[in-house]
Amino acid sequence: MSQPINTLKQQLTLASVSLNEPSSTASLPSPWFVRALQAFSGWLAALFLLGFIATGVVFVMESPLVSLVVGSLLMGGAFALLRAARSDVLEHMALAFSLAGQILVAWPAAEMWGVSANLWWVLLALQCALALVMPSQVHRSMSAFLASLALAMALAAHGLEPVAIGLVVLVLTLLWLNECRWPGWISAIQAWGVGLLAGLLVLQGQAYSGQRGWFLDLGVQWIGPWLANWLGIALVALALSGVIHQAFRQHSQPAIAQRLAMYGAVALVAVLSFYMPGFGAGVTVLLLGFAIGHWLLMGSGVLLLLMAVSSYYYWLDVTLLMKSLMLLAMGALLLTLRLALKRWLLNRWLTLNKSVAVGDANEQ
């Protein structure tokens, strides 16, 4: 009497189906606190090593050419280390070496042009190049973050601080909305998006603190401050229109009335952003997070909105009565938009179910 076949593997073997046994088991990801400890160890080791090297090569900072060569070598070594890195310790050590190399490369530019817009444009180009070529998520996020700060400083030298924030919001929106368009670059786009999001939070925090750009009065003013504010608001409104259009396109093509309502809401947000700086950026990031289901973006959008409302509340040029009325109107607007979207989605769901039921009845 033959033994019963109990396992699926035995059944497939008797059916002449070949099985590919895995050569190695998949490794489990390390917990976050272990990775944080490894990152701290990498930075600590890199700082000790850089300090030991700096004690022997102090003359590097005295020669711009030597500083440029040594900085390039450090960035090249960081690139090679990142290509071979298989642990967080080596990855963060390479990041520390790369940042040290960037400082040495920026030193000759600072001596040539001084602390001016030309220096920040050079640093912006350097950070963009590193964000493209460095094979590390952490390094790409850091380069995108530093690129956003360099862009803000470069534009602040010409009185265009609000334009920098609008550009960061627009680029951030375009990256996250087109995340899946290039499958081979998904990880890089996510890293750039996180870095730009961190840069946006820092820039908005600097704007709310009342500190203007470091070098705002050193360059030629391209346009007036009033036009610069509206240009930055227009960039944020363009990003918000893209987010709303993407959200509608996921369900169906919006009708003419819906498009007019969408453009009216964007215009109203733009007007409110003029009196409440940062409100449009917060709404854009929050809706972007809802559109793509990203919790970090949603949390950052809520934080930006809270910062905007808090800053507006302590604005001394407007009375408390006007502030209260403005906040009341804004809350009513948001509740109305929520109700309208809820009814629209309900009508779409009912229409879809009705069409499916009619189709099933016709088939029967």
Rank of each mutant, 00 (worst) to 15 (best):
L321I: 08
L321R: 03
L321H: 06
L321G: 06
K323V: 06
K323R: 09
L325A: 04
M326T: 07
M326K: 02
M326H: 03
M326Y: 03
L327R: 03
L327K: 02
L328D: 00
L328Y: 00
A329F: 03
M330S: 00
G331M: 02
L334V: 11
L335E: 00
L335S: 05
T336R: 05
T336I: 03
L337W: 04
L337I: 04
R338N: 11
R338M: 14
L339I: 08
L339F: 11
L339Y: 08
L341R: 14
L341Y: 10
L341N: 10
L341T: 06
K342W: 10
K342P: 04
K342A: 12
K342L: 09
K342V: 09
R343M: 07
R343N: 12
W344P: 03
W344M: 07
L345K: 08
L345C: 05
L345R: 07
L346W: 13
L346G: 12
L346R: 14
N347A: 14
N347E: 11
R348S: 08
W349D: 13
L350D: 07
T351E: 11
T351F: 12
T351P: 06
T351R: 13
T351S: 10
L352M: 15
L352T: 15
L352W: 15
L352N: 15
N353E: 10
K354Y: 14
K354F: 10
S355G: 09
V356M: 12
A357K: 10
A357L: 12
A357P: 06
A357I: 11
A357F: 13
A357N: 10
V358T: 13
V358W: 11
V358Y: 09
V358S: 10
G359T: 10
D360Q: 15
D360R: 13
D360P: 08
A361C: 09
A361H: 10
A361R: 14
